[in-house]
Amino acid sequence: MTTGAGGASPTRSMSDTYFHDMYAGSDDPWGFAERFYERRKYALTLASLSAEHYPHVFEPGCSIGVLSDQLARRSDRLLCTDLSPRAVELATRRLAHHGDRVRVQIGDLLTDWPDEEFDLIVLSEVLYYLDPDALDGLLERLPASLSSGGEMIAVHWRHEVAEYPQSGDDVHDRLRHGPLHHAGGYRDADLRLDVFTARAGPSVAQRENLVP
C-alpha cells in the first residue's frame, strides 16, 4: 500500500476508524489498481526478490490484493491479511482464481501475527502506522517467523504524511538496525525499499555459479 491503507496495531496513534472510513468511501481509495506509481512500485518490489519462487509467503496489510495477485504467481502458498473487512472482501474476490493455496483473512499487523514460518514476508506500506516501540516489537518477532533461508522485503512511501506515527525513512532506518541481515535496497524521491534475510548467504549470481 502506498499512502495509507493496511495492517495496524492497537499501539499506533491512528484509529482503526481511519482505515474503515477510507474503504467506506471507495473500493480502491489509494488507486492501487490504477496508478502507474503503484505498478512501478510493484515491479520494483518483485524485481528485488532474490528467488524466482517461494514455498510460503505472508503479506500483512494486503489491501485489495493487487500486489498479492502477483505474489501468488511466485509462491506455493500465500497468506494475506488486512485490518479492513471490506479490503479483505475485495482481495478475496481478486485472488479467488488462485484457489485454496491463497488465504485471505482479517488480521491486525501485531495482535494477529501468525504462528507460522515463512520463506518470504512482504511489508509494503504498513510499518509507518506503528509507533517506534510497536515497530521494535515486531522486528524482534521477525527472525522466528522466517525459514532458515527466509527473506523479508519492506517498501514505504518517503514523503511526509502528518498523521502517520513515523515516516518511511524512520521505518527503514530502524529496520537497518534490526536483527535481520541487510541484503540490498533501493531508494528514490518517492519510495524506499530494503531486502533482509534471516542470515547472510550467497547472492543470486553465486547461487547460479556465475561468480565464485
Rank of each mutant, 00 (worst) to 15 (best):
32 F>P: 02
91 A>W: 01
188 D>A: 08
92 T>M: 02
56 H>C: 05
152 M>Q: 14
120 L>R: 09
160 E>S: 08
121 I>A: 14
13 S>R: 04
18 Y>F: 05
110 L>Q: 11
13 S>Y: 01
194 D>P: 06
30 W>V: 10
162 A>Q: 11
68 S>A: 15
43 A>P: 03
197 T>H: 14
176 R>Q: 07
10 P>D: 06
43 A>K: 13
107 G>V: 04
50 S>F: 08
86 R>C: 00
148 S>K: 13
151 E>F: 13
182 H>C: 08
189 A>Y: 12
90 L>D: 05
110 L>A: 10
8 A>M: 09
94 R>G: 10
72 A>L: 07
94 R>Q: 09
86 R>I: 00
176 R>H: 06
86 R>S: 01
96 A>W: 02
147 S>C: 11
208 E>I: 14
17 T>R: 14
191 L>K: 04
48 S>T: 12
146 L>D: 15
60 P>E: 07
204 V>L: 07
176 R>I: 05
183 A>M: 12
168 G>A: 00
136 D>R: 15
147 S>T: 15
140 E>V: 12
141 R>P: 02
70 Q>P: 01
53 H>W: 15
119 D>T: 11
170 D>Y: 03
4 G>E: 12
6 G>H: 02
43 A>F: 07
66 V>G: 06
57 V>N: 14
211 V>M: 10
202 P>E: 15
108 D>V: 01
129 Y>K: 03
197 T>A: 14
109 L>M: 10
149 G>C: 07
4 G>R: 11
108 D>R: 10
162 A>E: 13
5 A>F: 00
194 D>S: 08
126 V>Y: 02
4 G>C: 06
167 S>M: 01
49 L>A: 15
56 H>M: 06
127 L>K: 01
157 W>I: 06
23 Y>W: 14
153 I>Y: 14
106 I>W: 01
157 W>R: 05
116 E>W: 00
177 H>A: 10
70 Q>R: 14
21 D>S: 04
51 A>K: 14
122 V>D: 13
155 V>N: 05
205 A>D: 08
48 S>F: 11
180 L>G: 11
116 E>Y: 01
55 P>R: 13
52 E>G: 13
73 R>T: 12
70 Q>D: 07
37 Y>H: 10
130 L>W: 02
83 L>Q: 04
167 S>W: 03
124 S>I: 04
201 G>L: 11
113 W>C: 04
63 S>R: 06
150 G>F: 13
122 V>M: 12
10 P>L: 08
168 G>Q: 04
85 P>A: 07
143 P>N: 15
53 H>Y: 15
134 A>M: 02
200 A>N: 08
91 A>C: 04
152 M>N: 14
31 G>R: 07
24 A>L: 09
74 R>C: 13
186 Y>R: 03
56 H>I: 04
173 D>I: 12
131 D>H: 08
156 H>R: 00
204 V>P: 03
17 T>D: 13
30 W>Q: 06
193 L>V: 09
28 D>T: 12
176 R>E: 10
22 M>E: 02
83 L>G: 00
47 A>Y: 10
124 S>M: 06
49 L>M: 15
46 L>M: 10
184 G>S: 11
108 D>L: 03
206 Q>N: 12
198 A>C: 13
109 L>H: 10
6 G>S: 03
21 D>F: 01
190 D>V: 12
52 E>W: 11
56 H>K: 11
57 V>R: 12
